[in-house]
């Protein structure tokens, strides 16, 4: 029952994230929403794994937790450097988001 309540709570949070991701208004709101949505998905996968008695679902939750980090770095880099190829250095290539 506790797991079911947790699932319901996560679903409500996910709906709120989707609303933010769709409405924006700025791209940063959307990135934040997508990133927290990733975290909520990791949690949801973990919870329904136990809810349905299949704890090996955790594998997928774990892998997404790792990949979410990489995607977030890619997004940040997209805004800061406008290139996926530049190394993260203080001087070279760093520019304002819109130039």
């Amino acid at each position: 029952m506790l797991l079911a309540a947790g699932t319901a709570g996560l679903l409500v949070a996910m709906v709120l994230m989707i609303a933010r991701a769709v409405m924006g208004p700025s791209q940063y709101d959307r990135i934040l929403a997508a990133n927290s949505f990733g975290t909520k998905t990791v949690l949801l996968l973990a919870v329904i794994g136990y809810l349905f008695g299949r704890p090996h679902f955790l594998d997928v939750a774990l892998v997404y937790a790792l990949i979410n980090f990489v995607v977030t770095i890619a997004l940040m880099k997209f805004f800061r450097y406008r290139s996926l190829a530049q190394p993260l250095t203080a001087s070279a290539g760093e520019r304002a988001p819109h130039d």
């Binding site: 980090f69 990489v70 770095i73 890619a74 996926l84 190829a85 530049q86 190394p87 993260l88």
Partner: peptide, 10 residues
């Protein structure tokens, strides 16, 4: 890809 994002393509 993570290595490329952080340390650069080169």
């Amino acid at each position: 890809i993570l290595y490329g994002l952080v340390f650069g393509l080169r």
